[in-house]
């Protein structure tokens, strides 16, 4: 396990630098004046251009510029927003809210998704399975922002069960509706994945052997079928974190939540590209790190990975 962890960390390093460089490269070496592009249609205030040139070391070669940027990144300087506030400051305030929202969504999609997927997989071809499949297809085909509007309209405006906007402290209760919206697509994917995986494992030889040992059906299903079906679900959760981040930008935008996603949403809509790029760079780094964690969890679940040479 130690060896595996070490190897994964080593493999992550080029990906980390590659991905951050890619973002840096996209923004700062595209044709046209990067500063003008950053500011879109609004010309920056006089003096700002010079300030930014100095800030981003634009007179130096690209690689050197990048190294300076990444060096600052490691020292906790994650960049600056449009209005000049350090990204790390904004993060400190916004991150806890987004973290709460993401946790709620994750708990919902993982627990409900696995449960529904398990039952559907065990009753393949029956009505529960059929309806779970239909619902999951529908959830995937409706974009998150449409679902967000609809939920807000139905449960917030018409039924009045939830507040339509979340207050700045964003208590848990107010986050339930946005979390449901955020979790919806991933929930549907997890249902489908678990269902397929459970149905597959039910036919596995080792499950028949477990039954032949004299184990109860409940034990066979939980210890052998479910446990083995979780392995692909965990891998999916890692990749899916990316969609969760995009989802957070949209849901926090719709429900007016002052989290990281909401900040990025406002910045995108207002065309404040510096803010957008700085935050997304941080998100990508989180994504890479989270995937490392997921890989380790994957190894913990599947000994064949752990002991692979």
């Amino acid at each position: 396990m130690l060896w595996y962890t070490g190897r994964r960390v080593l493999q992550m390093i080029p990906v980390f630098f590659g991905a951050t460089f890619l973002i840096y490269f996209m923004v700062f070496s595209l044709p046209g004046d990067p500063i003008a592009a950053l500011y879109g249609d609004r010309p920056p205030a006089p003096g700002v251009i010079e300030q930014i040139r100095a800030q981003y070391n634009l007179d130096k070669p690209l690689l050197q510029q990048y190294l300076i940027y990444i060096g600052n990144f490691f020292q906790g300087d994650l960049g600056t927003t449009y209005s000049g506030r350090p990204v790390s400051d904004v993060m400190a305030g916004a991150f806890p809210i987004t973290f709460r929202l993401a946790m709620l969504a994750l708990v919902f999609e993982a627990f409900a998704g696995i449960l529904v997927g398990l039952v559907a997989g065990l009753r393949k071809g029956k009505w529960f399975d059929a309806s779970a499949l239909v619902v999951s297809l529908l959830l995937i085909s409706v974009p998150t922002f449409v679902l967000g509007f609809l939920f807000r309209l139905i449960f917030g405006v018409q039924l009045g069960w939830f507040r339509t906007t979340v207050s700045s402290e964003a208590p848990w209760g107010e986050l339930i509706l946005p979390a449901l919206v955020l979790a919806s697509v991933s929930f549907a994917y997890i249902v489908r994945l678990t269902r397929a995986s459970v149905a597959d494992n039910l036919n596995a030889d080792f499950v028949r052997t477990a039954t032949a040992k004299g184990l109860s059906r409940r034990r066979v299903v939980t210890v052998h079928v479910l446990r083995n079906s979780l392995v692909p679900v965990v891998t999916f959760l890692g990749v899916d974190l990316g969609s969760l981040m995009v989802g957070a930008i949209i849901t926090e935008g719709i429900f007016n939540i002052n989290g990281v996603g909401g900040t990025v949403y406002k910045a995108i809509v207002l065309g404040e590209s510096t803010t957008v790029v700085s935050f997304i760079a941080v998100m990508v780094v989180i994504f890479v790190l989270a995937n490392l964690l997921v890989d380790l969890l994957y190894a913990a679940l599947d000994p064949r990975i752990r002991y692979a040479k």
Partner: peptide, 24 residues
């Protein structure tokens, strides 16, 4: 594979947001 890993580390829409917000 390594280049793929790097692009894979940037979730599609996040990457697209960055590119689209600087592209005219």
């Amino acid at each position: 594979s390594r280049v793929g890993d790097i692009f894979f580390a940037i979730p599609t829409i996040l990457g697209a947001i960055v590119l689209m917000s600087v592209l005219p």
